[in-house]
Design a protein around this nucleic acid. Structure first.
Lengths: 346, 346
DNA sequence: AGCAATAACCAAAACGTTTTGGAAAGCTAG
DNA sequence: CTAGCTTTCCAAAACGTTTTGGTTATTGCT
C-alpha cells in the first residue's frame, strides 16, 4: 500500500499528526501507551515517512554526495573505486545516510555535478575521491563553506580541509628502501598523471629514499604516463635502453605494475629475476597475478569508511574542526621483488 | 549566497512566486518581458531551486537508484562496476537525473536498502546491477509495481521485466566454437557462482557448442568457484590431474582468467602453448596482461547507458511495456588462444 | 462604444513532514 | 477545594516549491 501519509495514520490511531511524528522520533513527551497504539497503526497501514517531506521540513537530506572522476585517468577502471565505495557505503548505511553519486568525464562536468548537488540542497556533504592540483571543485566548496572531505591529500590549504589519506611519502620511501635493501641501486619510478597528488607524494618518497641511500635521483629513471598502452610501452622501452637500465622499479599503482610486468617480459626482461617491482594499493589482483606483487596495502576500505565517518560528523556538527586522518599502510612482501641477482653484479 | 527562495526572487522582480516558477519551467503563459526581468533577478541573487521542495510538490525525485552487490562475489572488485556506472551516469546526467547508490554486504542489507529507497520515495526507479536466481528484491519490486530494470537476465518472469543484457548463451557458444575451430577437443569451463544467471547462460552456450561439435559435456571439466584463491587453486589443480586434461578453457570472467593463467604456469602449463584460454568482458586489463586475453567484449558501458535510458523512459511513462535490450558483443582475438599444438597431438 | 476573448499575472492550496506554542487533564500539596 | 505542576496531546505554522482557479488588463470585433 503506497502513499500512506502521516495524517491517515494519525486519524486511524485517533491522534494528531504531530503525535505520530513524535512517535517516529521516539520523543519522550509521548506516553508509552499511545506510542504502542500509533506504532500498531503504522505497521498495519504500512506507513513509511516520505523522505522528501521530511528533508524539506528538516532542511537536511540525510545523504552525502560522492564525486568520482572518470576517464581523466583511464586507469580508473581501477578496483580502487568499488572498494572505497564499499567503505563509504558501509558507514553511510549504518548511520542512515544515502549516497548520491556524481561522476563526470571532464573537469567541467564534475564541477557542474557538484554545483548541482550543493545549490539544490541535494546533499548534506560531499566526499571527493580524488585530489589534484589547483582543483576548482575544492575552491568552490571552500568558498561555499560546504562540508566536504577528500580522500587523498589536498594540494592546497591542507589545514583547512579535512582529508583521509595514507602517508604516501613515507610509504613511497619505505617501499623504495625495501628495494634498496635488496641490493638494488638503479631504481626507476613509473607513475600516473603528475597532477595527482598521490603520484607526487609517492614519487617524493622514492626520491627521499634514494637521497638517503646516496643514490642519484635521475630524470631518465622516471616515467609519467596516464595510461599503459602505446605511450607507456614506448616509455618503458626507452627506460630500458639507457646505458644503466634499472634493476628495480617503483610503480605508483598495482594495475600499472601488471602492465609493466608484461611489457618487460616482452622485451626479454623477467620479473623478478632481471627486474624487481614494487607498487601500491594491494588490490585483489596483485595477489593472484604472476608474479604476485610486493605492494603497499593502503587499506582502501578504511580510507572510505573513515572519510564517511568524518564527513557525517562534520555535517552533524558544523563546528568540527578540519581533521587529517592518516590510515596506516602495510607492505605486503610477495615475489615480485627479490635480491639483486649476482648475475648483474658480475 | 545560499538559501535564496523563490519568494525573495519574486519580490525582487516584482512578481508573484508562481510567476517565477513558470519562468523556470519556461511556461508560455509568461510574457518575454517578465521572463527576462525575472531571469535577471534570479541570476543576480544567485537563485537555485531547492530540489527537495520541488520534488515534494512534484511527487517525483529526479533520481534513480543503483543497486550494486558487493562481497557476495568478491570478484566484484571487478572493473565491470566503474564501467557500467560510467554508462549509467552519462545518460542520467544528460537527462538531469541523479544517482542514488545502494550496496550491501549481504542479501538482507541489499533488500533493506531497496525497501528504503522505494518506501520513502527517494527514487523514481531502480537499476539492478546483478541478477540471480529467485531474487527477493526483484519480487519485491514487481509486487510494488515499482519501475526497475536489471542489467543481466532476470531468472524468472523474463517477459515482465525490462532488462539489458548480452546474448550470453550465444556469446558462450561462439567463443567455445572458436576454441573448437582452433582444434581443441578437451575444453573445460570455469565459472563463478552458479546462482548468477550470467554464469549459467555462458555455460549453456559452452554446452551447446560442445554438443554441436559432437564433443562430450563432462562434469569433470567444469569448475564453479566464487573466488580464486585457495579453493580455486585446488580445483584447477584437480582439473588438470584427470586423465585427459583440457587443452582449452572457457572462463566466465577476465579477472578469473588472469588468476587461472598464473595458476597454470605454476603447475607447469603455459598459456597458450599448452592451454588456450578464452573469457568474457574485455576489461581494460585483458589487453595489457600477458598473454593478452582472447575475450568477448560485452560493451559494458552500453549495458549501463541503455539500462539508464530504458529506466528513465519507463519512469516518465509508466505505461511503457517491458523491454528486452540485447547489446551486441564482439570477440577480441588476442594471444591467449591459439591452435592446438602439434605437440599434444603426437 | 461595448462585449467577448485572450493575455498576463496573482493568491492560495497542496505536497508530507517537523516543530512551536499552547491547552486540557491529571496530579500534588497546602 | 484550589493553586501550581506535570504530563500528554493538539492546532497551526513552517519548509520551498508547483499548480489550480481566478482576476485584472488588453486586445479584437461588431
Amino acid at each position: 500500500m503506497l502513499g500512506v501519509t502521516i495524517k491517515q495514520v494519525a486519524k486511524a490511531a485517533g491522534v494528531a499528526p504531530s503525535t505520530v511524528s513524535r512517535v517516529i522520533a521516539d520523543h519522550p513527551r509521548i506516553s508509552t501507551a499511545t506510542k504502542k497504539r500509533v506504532k500498531k497503526a503504522m505497521k498495519e497501514m504500512g506507513y513509511h515517512p516520505n523522505a522528501n517531506a521530511r528533508n524539506l521540513a528538516n532542511r537536511s537530506t540525510q545523504s552525502i554526495g560522492v564525486v568520482m572522476p572518470t576517464s581523466a585517468d583511464k586507469a580508473l577502471q581501477n578496483p580502487f573505486f568499488p572498494e572505497v565505495l564499499r567503505g563509504i557505503s558501509a558507514v553511510a548505511h549504518h548511520l542512515d545516510y544515502s549516497l548520491l553519486l556524481s561522476t563526470g568525464e571532464t573537469d567541467e562536468e564534475m564541477q557542474e555535478g557538484v554545483e548541482r548537488m550543493v545549490y539544490s540542497n541535494r546533499v548534506d556533504g560531499i566526499i571527493l575521491l580524488y585530489s589534484q592540483i589547483d582543483d576548482p571543485v575544492v575552491n568552490f566548496l571552500l568558498e561555499q563553506d560546504f562540508p566536504f572531505v577528500v580522500v587523498g591529500k589536498p594540494s592546497e590549504r591542507v589545514d583547512e580541509i579535512t582529508h583521509v589519506d595514507n602517508d604516501n611519502v613515507r610509504a613511497g620511501k619505505d617501499i623504495t628502501s625495501h628495494l634498496i635493501n635488496l641490493g638494488h641501486e638503479n631504481i626507476g619510478f613509473i607513475g600516473g598523471s603528475q597532477d595527482r597528488i598521490v603520484t607526487i607524494d609517492r614519487m617524493r618518497g622514492y626520491e627521499l629514499a634514494l637521497k638517503e641511500a646516496g643514490l642519484p635521483f635521475l630524470k631518465d629513471y622516471r616515467i609519467h604516463t596516464e595510461f599503459l598502452k602505446s605511450g607507456g610501452r614506448q616509455a618503458v622501452h626507452e627506460l630500458f635502453s639507457i646505458p644503466d637500465p634499472p634493476t628495480g622499479l617503483v610503480i605508483a599503482d598495482d594495475l600499472m605494475s601488471i602492465g609493466v610486468v608484461n611489457m618487460l617480459e616482452e622485451f626479454g626482461k623477467r620479473v623478478p629475476q632481471d627486474v624487481s617491482i614494487v607498487s601500491f594499493n594491494n588490490v585483489y589482483l596483485s595477489e593472484v597475478t604472476r608474479p604476485p606483487l610486493t605492494t603497499v596495502d593502503i587499506h582502501i576500505y578504511q580510507l572510505g569508511s573513515q572519510a564517511a565517518k568524518c564527513l557525517i560528523e562534520k555535517v552533524k556538527d558544523r563546528s568540527e574542526p578540519a581533521k587529517r586522518i592518516i590510515i596506516p599502510y602495510e607492505i605486503k612482501h610477495r615475489a615480485s621483488a627479490t635480491e639483486k641477482e649476482a648475475s648483474s653484479k658480475v
